[in-house]
Every structure is written in structure tokens, then in C-alpha cells.
């Protein structure tokens, strides 16, 4: 087994876990969204790595080139990135609203305030 042939996938797993760790271990809501962003990008990297063909060219048809990388993951991820920023902004908008209602974006403070009510 060639170690290098799985290197990309392992990096994806590490990035995904770092993002996951931020989401579950940090109490700040903005930080959690950043963690989700890292998680999301690691999935993008997984897809794009899967689409790569060794020795292939970018999928723009050119004379004299026969081997291209797979265009399908590119299409999926290209749209996913823009959808990702749109949905992240919904999350950030919710954070601003939560801050207006609770005066804090720390999960522990918010839960404490909820219990006192």
C-alpha cells in the first residue's frame, strides 16, 4: 500500500475532525460557525481530490489533450461553495439576533439565561 495515495483523504479527515472539534468544544457561536466552515471545506477537498486523475488536465477541452480530471465533482462543489456562503450568512444573521436577545453569543450564558426564565 502506498502511503501517499491516501494522504489527501487523511488530511480531509484531520481537517474535518478539527472543524468538528471546534463545533462541539467551543462555546462561542461565531466560532462554531467557523468550525462548520472548516468541516464544509474539508468535504469540498474530499470531492475535488476524488475528481483528480493523475496526469489529467483541467476539464476545458483543448486540442491534443486526451486525459482530463473529472468535471462532475467540480460542478457539485462549485455550486456548494456559493450555497455554503449563503447558508453561513443565515447562521451569522441568527447569531446577531441571538446577541440582540441575550446580550451574549456564548452558548453557556444563553443556556443559563434560558434556565433562569
Amino acid at each position: 500500500m502506498d502511503v501517499l495515495s491516501y494522504f489527501n483523504y487523511w488530511v480531509v479527515v484531520v481537517l474535518m475532525m478539527l472543524g468538528f472539534f471546534i463545533v462541539i468544544a467551543r462555546a462561542n457561536l461565531v466560532k462554531k460557525l467557523i468550525g462548520l466552515n472548516i468541516f464544509q471545506t474539508s468535504v469540498f477537498i474530499l470531492y475535488i481530490s476524488t475528481g483528480k486523475v493523475a496526469g489529467g488536465a483541467a476539464p476545458i477541452l483543448t486540442e491534443g489533450v486526451t486525459l482530463y480530471s473529472n468535471p462532475l465533482p467540480h460542478v457539485l462543489i462549485l455550486t456548494a461553495i456559493v450555497v455554503g456562503i449563503a447558508t453561513t450568512s443565515v447562521g451569522l444573521a441568527l447569531v446577531i439576533r441571538i446577541h440582540a436577545a441575550y446580550g451574549s453569543v456564548n452558548q453557556n450564558d444563553i443556556l443559563q439565561q434560558d434556565q433562569q426564565c
Binding site: T41, F44, I48, S49, G51, K52, G56, A57, A58, P59, I60, Y68, S69, P73, H74, I77, L78, I81, V82, G84, I85
Partner: peptide, 15 residues
């Protein structure tokens, strides 16, 4: 480097 130039373009502008 992964030949995904369109994706890179989007990620540079968005990310």
C-alpha cells in the same frame, strides 16, 4: 493543483 480551476475561482472569491 487539483485541476479544479472553476472551483478555485469560486473559493478564492467566496472563501
Amino acid at each position: 493543483t487539483m485541476d479544479a480551476v472553476d472551483v478555485a475561482f469560486t473559493e478564492a472569491a467566496v472563501g
